[in-house]
Computed example of a mutant assay.
Amino acid sequence: MTSVFAITASRVFDGQSFHQDAALIVDGAKVGAIMPQSKLPAGMKTLPIGNGLIAPGFIDLQVNGGGGVLFNNQPDVAGIETICAAHARFGTTALMVTLITDVAVIRNIAVDAGCKAAANAVPGFLGLHLEGPHLSVARKGTHDPSLIRPMTEDDLAYLENHAGHFGLPMITVAPESVAPDQVRRLVASGYRVSLGHTDSECAAIDAYVEAGATLVTHLFNAMSQLGNREPGLVGAGLSSAQLHCGLIADGFHVDPVTMRVALAAKQGPAHIFLVTDAMSTIGTNSTGFDLNGRAVYRRDGRLTLADGTLAGADIDMLSCVRFVHERLGQPLEEALRMASVYPAKAIGVTTKGNLASGQDADFLILSDDLDLQSTWIAGACAYEAEDDRRKASA
């Protein structure tokens, strides 16, 4: 492909609305424009896809692994590259590689890997999401309780010193283990602070929102629930205009009825956005893996510890979009926004999430049946389904 070319399709979704019989102009690594096919300049190199849909690339703010790699088990640049490539096969063009609760030495190694991945501009790498260890044991989920601990001054100084070096920095904390002043310092150094794995009452959340927390990690899971007299973090997240809420739409982590209620109840301008919370199994035939010395089993679309506790998710972002559209009845454009526009806003990325002129040329091509045809990152094809089909038939 030349540095400037057009891709034509029966529909182009720019993040807000559909353009019929349109062309997406790609100018190097950026979006040039969207225009009617009839107005394309004469002689422009064109890739026609016929019937189908061009849409903004998916953005996933919680990815623990993929392609056989769990970041906690392989916290290096090669691991990050494998995870990003695995999720590109399902339409994700930017992701936050997530390290769950672990010992400090693993955190340090992971942060060093994130710094190198950012310096090397690994395709699809957006930054690191540190999910723990400063959480609540009462709402530990699959996190090892022996590794959960309060945030110390040394922890905070380390995080402050490394902010901005490993891509976008994001951290999940619980009020039980982190003070509002610590959140304030994290935000001042550039972190997007998410609240999760907490048993806090709704009223206690206010101080953390005032300190700058702007997200809720996997809404409904591993947190205080919405009750008739105590709204919990769920109630705080749904009623707050400032809190963007991640949602795992696999049908196991949250019941579809509950998801519909949450989508109807959420107060803006913050939104509910999709996350996968994906583990190493994505893109593989693996039957399980090891997490902090504990076996995780893969069965019937679920990942669980031996006691049945959900241990991350076995779902990709395109499947989440399909679930929201087909099972929850959300319009296709809203399902697509939940995987692109809304996570971009939640993490503060201004160059991704839509296909306006000047944005990063991160997009995907879907069939009318929402099958992925190809994934493009920075104007280059990162994955093409036809390649997999050719390999399968060889």
Score class of each variant (00 low, 15 high):
residue 4 V to T: 15
residue 9 A to P: 06
residue 9 A to C: 10
residue 9 A to Y: 05
residue 17 S to L: 15
residue 17 S to C: 13
residue 18 F to Q: 09
residue 20 Q to L: 14
residue 20 Q to S: 15
residue 23 A to V: 00
residue 24 L to F: 10
residue 27 D to A: 07
residue 27 D to M: 03
residue 29 A to D: 15
residue 30 K to G: 03
residue 30 K to C: 03
residue 31 V to E: 11
residue 32 G to Y: 02
residue 37 Q to E: 15
residue 39 K to T: 05
residue 46 T to K: 13
residue 47 L to E: 15
residue 47 L to T: 12
residue 55 A to R: 01
residue 56 P to F: 04
residue 59 I to A: 02
residue 64 N to R: 00
residue 65 G to W: 01
residue 66 G to N: 01
residue 71 F to W: 09
residue 72 N to D: 08
residue 73 N to A: 04
residue 76 D to E: 13
residue 77 V to F: 12
residue 81 E to T: 13
residue 82 T to S: 13
residue 83 I to F: 08
residue 87 H to M: 11
residue 88 A to C: 12
residue 89 R to C: 12
residue 92 T to Q: 04
residue 92 T to G: 07
residue 96 M to C: 13
residue 96 M to S: 11
residue 101 T to F: 03
residue 102 D to I: 00
residue 105 V to Q: 11
residue 109 I to V: 14
residue 117 A to K: 08
residue 121 A to V: 03
residue 122 V to Q: 07
residue 122 V to I: 15
residue 123 P to F: 14
residue 128 L to C: 04
residue 129 H to A: 11
residue 130 L to V: 08
residue 134 H to E: 11
residue 134 H to Y: 09
residue 156 L to V: 13
residue 156 L to T: 09
residue 158 Y to I: 14
residue 159 L to G: 06
residue 162 H to V: 15
residue 165 H to Y: 06
residue 166 F to L: 03
residue 172 T to E: 10
residue 175 P to V: 13
residue 177 S to I: 09
residue 178 V to L: 08
residue 179 A to C: 06
residue 185 R to M: 13
residue 192 R to Q: 08
residue 195 L to S: 02
residue 196 G to D: 04
residue 197 H to F: 09
residue 197 H to G: 11
residue 199 D to R: 02
residue 204 A to P: 00
residue 204 A to E: 05
residue 205 I to L: 12
residue 212 G to R: 00
residue 221 N to H: 15
residue 224 S to V: 14
residue 226 L to R: 01
residue 230 E to G: 12
residue 230 E to L: 14
residue 249 A to E: 04
residue 253 H to L: 08
residue 255 D to A: 15
residue 256 P to E: 03
residue 257 V to N: 01
residue 259 M to N: 05
residue 262 A to M: 06
residue 264 A to V: 11
residue 265 A to H: 07
residue 274 L to G: 03
residue 278 A to Y: 02
residue 279 M to V: 05
residue 281 T to R: 01
residue 283 G to I: 09
residue 283 G to E: 05
residue 288 G to Y: 04
residue 292 N to K: 01
residue 292 N to S: 07
residue 292 N to V: 00
residue 295 A to Q: 15
residue 296 V to E: 06
residue 297 Y to S: 07
residue 297 Y to P: 05
residue 299 R to Y: 14
residue 302 R to E: 02
residue 308 G to D: 05
residue 310 L to A: 04
residue 313 A to H: 04
residue 314 D to K: 07
residue 314 D to P: 02
residue 318 L to N: 01
residue 320 C to E: 03
residue 323 F to K: 05
residue 323 F to S: 02
residue 325 H to F: 10
residue 329 G to D: 03
residue 333 E to M: 07
residue 334 E to K: 10
residue 345 K to V: 12
residue 348 G to F: 10
residue 350 T to C: 11
residue 354 N to E: 15
residue 357 S to H: 06
residue 358 G to M: 03
residue 374 S to Y: 01
residue 381 C to Y: 01
residue 382 A to S: 08
residue 387 D to E: 13
residue 388 D to Y: 10
residue 394 A to Y: 11
